Simulated scan of single mutants.
Amino acid sequence: MYKFKAVRNQGRYVFTQLVDFLPRKNFEWLVKKYEGNKYVKSFTCWNHLMVLLFGQLSYREGLRDLIVTITPFKSAFHHLGFGKNGTYFLFVIQTKLITQASNFS
């Protein structure tokens, strides 16, 4: 019979622990191949992927719902893997939503 060692929380968010299983080197290789970060100053493709994965894994129904869910975690963006400039993402998305809403009114 196999004995499994219990894994305890190491002071990290569950989302961050799940992300550790992603092949980041392969992702970075693809980003470099297709020049995904060519004109990026702060919010990289990896940060964008982390935010979108967070939304997917937390069953968000849309961007507004994602913003409402992520906003309380602003102080923990770096620890969640969103990068130090995760607030930039929120700003861009909110601006797009406001622009779209004004176009429909």
Rank of each mutant, 00 (worst) to 15 (best):
Y88I: 15
L53M: 12
N85K: 15
W29L: 11
I67S: 01
L66V: 04
Y59P: 00
L66W: 05
T95P: 00
P72I: 09
L66Q: 04
E28K: 14
R8S: 10
Y88M: 10
K74T: 15
L90N: 04
Q94W: 03
P72A: 11
R8L: 13
G86L: 03
N103H: 07
M50Y: 03
F104P: 00
G83S: 07
S105W: 05
T71L: 08
R12M: 10
A101Q: 12
N26H: 09
Q17H: 06
Q10M: 09
S42C: 10
G81F: 01
V92F: 04
F27H: 09
F54R: 00
L18W: 07
F82Q: 00
V14W: 00
L53P: 00
F77C: 06
R24K: 13
V7H: 04
V92N: 11
G83Q: 05
F54C: 04
Q17Y: 00
Y88A: 14
F43W: 08
L22S: 00
L30K: 12
R8D: 09
G83L: 06
R12P: 02
Q94R: 15
L63K: 09
L97I: 15
T95W: 01
N37F: 04
G86R: 02
I70K: 01
Y88G: 08
E28L: 14
T95Q: 13
L80Y: 13
K38G: 06
A101L: 08
T69I: 09
V51I: 13
S105Q: 12
F91S: 13
F4Q: 12
F43C: 06
K96H: 10
G86I: 03
R8G: 09
Q10S: 12
V51T: 04
T99W: 06
V19M: 08
Y88T: 15
A76E: 15
F89V: 06
A6H: 08
E61G: 11
F82H: 01
V7Q: 10
F91P: 01
V92L: 14
F77H: 15
F77S: 00
N9C: 10
F54V: 02
H48G: 08
K32V: 06
Y13D: 15
E28G: 02
L63C: 02
V31F: 05
A6V: 14
N37G: 03
T87Y: 05
K41L: 12
G86N: 05
A101Y: 06
D20Y: 06
L18D: 04
L18Q: 08
W29Y: 11
Q17P: 03
F27L: 15
R60Y: 01
E28N: 11
F21S: 12
V7M: 05
H78M: 07
L80A: 07
F82G: 01
G55M: 03
G11S: 12
L18C: 14
W46S: 03
V92G: 01
R64E: 15
F82R: 05
K3G: 03
N47L: 03
R64Y: 04
T99F: 07
Q10N: 13
Q17M: 10
G36F: 01
R60N: 11
Y88C: 07
F54K: 01
A101D: 12
L22C: 06
G81A: 06
M1G: 15
L63T: 02
P23C: 08
L49M: 13
E61R: 13
S105P: 05
T95C: 08
I98D: 15
F54E: 02
R24N: 07
F77M: 07
S58Y: 10
F104C: 09
K25L: 09
G55T: 04
V51D: 02
S42A: 12
V51Y: 01
S102C: 09
